[in-house]
Design a protein around this nucleic acid. Structure first.
Lengths: 295, 295
DNA sequence: CCTGATCAATCGCAAAACGGTATCAATGCT
DNA sequence: AGCATTGATACCGTTTTGCGATTGATCAGG
């Protein structure tokens, strides 16, 4: 019965079968039958049959007014669904770790996303990398920007944006601040501030393993959550610490960043989502980031 | 595309093709194709195909929410149209002349109508008989209760409720108030209050003609619109006047009603509407009145 | 590791819905 | 009277829709 509605609306608006048929691009007899069926199923006449032509009656006017709204709402519903499917409306809950937004490519991609898809609710959720992996699997975020660990990719899809590593942050004026080559063996006397294991168990373990490989055991004074915090503690002169290479240029005045030659913990900052369950909005964001680094 | 909506809603609510197919009383493969067609035409997937079963995706949720409303509104629209066709909702503009509502059969039918069709807006419009005939033809009222003149029935349909005639209203204590038989010849000295010609040209002319037939020419003191007014003027002793027989029992204390033997102007109080264009609500009212007098 | 159960997708065929042309009956206009 | 217009009807071909059988993939249980 629903399928008869567009036919009826056409006839109701024209109050003339021929013009309505032309508008619908069908022949007039077909239209006559559609209307007859509709009237039969409704159990009510919708038009008064005049000796010449037809005119809407009371029931017809009711159905014209109500039915027109139904058609319009259906059109809107289809458009909204299509836009949702294309990722032009909806919600994107995007996890990001403490450093992700500091990369110009990421920041500018997010600005571009906002501009291009103003009807998408972009919810930026700061979360440690570990929490993002859990959040993706639990469905509490739709995509994440975080350090991807090769052992943890099961069920996730995505691509790398930035390849990163660690630099040593030293207070300006520290005895090693101006040394040529630094290696782990130079750091046995230092007190370290270390990224917390709760933030990223896997990354933490890899850092420790990289030290152990060189026979080095860091003297960990305190654990802390973000690179920002590490830098401010280092600036105060209390300790030294490793921060991602990407912090270069963002360090405060009292801090210098130096490469440690025999300490490398390669990290990949990825945009990731649950494999096969990426909402369209996430794909739109991916499309904006993809050109910036390989897929 | 509209026709696919009920299929989609069923699958969306069940998130399971088999149960949805059972609910729709069709086979599962047919349903699969309906959904595929809808997805193709929308240009957006509506379900995530899981290894086992399906689940609504973002676009699907949007269409489920919007589409469900569309279906519900369509159902309501159909019901409203059907009820309008049955005369259960809508508006009935009913003209009535000054005496119509004084008949118990009419008053009780209107009460019954209100009770039985509470969703019909019953608009009671007091109008002289003449104005009602014009109003019906102009479409300003849907039906009328008035004195039908045989010469004026063209294009109208309806049936008679009451057959009426005129009585003479006299002030109590009038010299003729207690006379046995009255005839027009007794009234040559009287001053008359007379129904206005603007209220009913045809009726006015018939009354004058009935007088002339008997060689009587009424001494018309003033013209006036309603029988109520006639009675109150008569009660004041200023004049005498003819009022419909139906006023018997409704006359004020100072007035007596007497038959004038040789003065008869038969009137038919009809319920009438435009032939072939009676709205369903008018038919409902007619059905309540019809049993009371012949059709 | 097999077996049966479950679920959506695909295939082939039949029925129903739908649309088109030709025509009719009634009416209005010239 | 003759012609144009309007909606209704009749008949026929095409498209859509539905069904049954089957497949392919996955999951649960022994």
């Amino acid at each position: 019965m629903l399928r008869h509605l567009p036919y009826f609306i056409a006839v109701a608006e024209e109050e003339n079968f021929q013009r309505a048929a032309a508008r619908l691009k069908i022949a007039q007899p077909a239209l006559t039958r559609r209307i007859q069926e509709l009237e039969r199923k409704l159990g009510a006449r919708l038009f008064d049959r005049l000796p010449r032509g037809v005119r809407l009656n009371e029931a017809g006017r009711v159905l014209r007014d109500d039915g027109k709204r139904v058609l319009e709402e259906f059109d809107r519903a289809c458009q909204r669904a299509a836009r949702a499917g294309a990722g032009e409306i909806g919600r994107l809950r995007l996890g990001y770790n403490d450093v992700a937004l500091k990369f110009p490519v990421v920041a500018s991609a997010l600005r571009e996303f906002r501009a291009r898809y103003p009807d998408v609710e972009l919810r930026l959720m700061p979360m440690p990398s570990e929490a993002q992996r859990a959040g993706l699997r639990a469905g509490s975020i739709d995509a994440g920007l975080f350090y991807m660990e090769p052992e943890e990719v099961a069920g996730l899809a995505g691509f790398t944006l930035i390849e990163d590593d660690f630099l040593l942050a030293l207070p300006r004026g520290h005895r090693l601040a101006d040394r040529g080559d630094l290696c782990l063996a130079d750091l046995t006397e230092e007190r370290f501030i270390w990224p917390s294991r709760t933030e990223g168990r896997v990354l933490y373990d890899r850092m420790i393993a990289a030290c152990r490989e060189r026979g080095f055991s860091p003297n960990i004074e305190m654990e802390i959550l973000t690179a920002d915090n590490t830098l401010s503690v280092v600036a105060s002169g209390i300790a030294v610490g490793f921060v991602p290479l990407s912090q270069l240029g963002a360090e405060p005045d009292g801090v210098v960043l130096r490469k440690v030659a025999d300490f490398s913990v390669p990290m990949r900052l990825d945009l990731a989502w649950v494999d096969g369950a990426a909402p369209p909005v996430a794909e739109r964001l991916a499309a904006l980031l993809k050109p910036l680094k390989r897929g």
